[in-house]
Structures are given as C-alpha cells and as structure tokens.
Amino acid sequence: DCLGNANYLCQVATVDDVPVAFLILSRILDETHVLNIAVAPAWQRHGIARRLLQQALSAARADAMTVVYLEVRESNQSAQALYRQLGFEVCGVRKNYYRKGDGHENAVLMQCLLTSGHK
C-alpha cells in the first residue's frame, strides 16, 4: 500500500544492488511520520537504520518540517535507544497498538522536534 501511494516517501538501502533496508515516511502539513523502517537481519547493527533516519531528518529540516513522529514496540529497547540518540523523545503510549503472538503490545510514541537545537 505504501509503495503505491504518492503521498509517501520511500527510501531503500542496497548493498551490491541487493535491498537490505527500507524507510517509509508520510508527510502531513509540517509533520513527518515514520511509518516503517526495517533492516534485514544480516545487516542489522551496521548503522544502516541510523543513516536512513539521519537522511530523513535532514530532508525534513530542509523542507521546513517541524516534527517527526514514530511508534516503536515497547519491548524494542535497542530501537528506542537509537531514536533517543537521534533526538527523539517519548511523548506518549498507544495501548495494545501492535499484535504480539496471541496478544498485543503497547507502542511508545516518540517525537523529534526539528529546531536548531536538535541534531
């Protein structure tokens, strides 16, 4: 659905012409929303997600966006740490947002304010 929608921005990272990661963003007025970011297991912890997000934050600033939002699984502490390093802060929780096995998991809502004082 995201790839066919002209309102979404999609980035793909490749290694030797093989896709290893992607990032999908949505922009509404002056807000950018990270809809999905994924890195192939063999390429995780190589800085690819960080680079994709840094590029997205730079582009959002250049395009006069004021904030970037994302949701992350409550249990995904490594992703939350990366987002905090990039200037994101927790701004809420979405109860039972993600499916998890036979139940649900909360999402942590994070925002990065795109002012001159942030990375």
Rank of each mutant, 00 (worst) to 15 (best):
R61K: 14
V39W: 03
D102K: 00
Y8Q: 02
L109I: 08
S78T: 15
D30R: 13
C10K: 05
M110L: 09
E105V: 05
V67E: 10
V108S: 02
R51F: 01
S78E: 10
M110C: 05
L109M: 12
T115K: 10
T66D: 09
A60T: 07
I28Y: 08
A107C: 02
A59M: 11
A79W: 02
Q54P: 02
A79D: 13
R94W: 07
L82E: 06
N106E: 02
L57W: 05
M110G: 09
N96G: 15
A81M: 04
C2W: 15
Y98Q: 08
Q80G: 08
R51M: 06
Y98G: 12
A59L: 14
D16Q: 06
V39A: 02
H33W: 01
N76R: 00
F88W: 04
F22H: 06
N36G: 09
I28H: 09
V90W: 04
Q80A: 05
D30T: 11
R99T: 13
E105H: 12
K95S: 14
D1H: 07
R50D: 13
A6P: 10
G47H: 09
L29F: 10
E105K: 12
H46V: 07
L3C: 04
V12R: 07
A42Q: 14
H46K: 12
L23W: 05
A64S: 14
L70R: 02
K95R: 15
I28F: 08
Q85V: 09
A42S: 13
D17I: 00
R27M: 04
V15M: 11
K100T: 14
S78A: 15
V18E: 08
S26H: 14
V34H: 00
E89Q: 10
Q77G: 14
R50I: 06
C91R: 15
L70Q: 04
R73I: 00
C2R: 07
S58C: 08
E74A: 12
E31N: 03
V90M: 12
Y69S: 08
H118P: 01
H118R: 11
L57I: 09
P19G: 00
T32M: 11
C91Y: 11
S78Y: 04
S116C: 08
M65F: 01
R99P: 00
S26R: 13
R50S: 13
F22A: 05
Y97S: 01
A40T: 13
R84P: 10
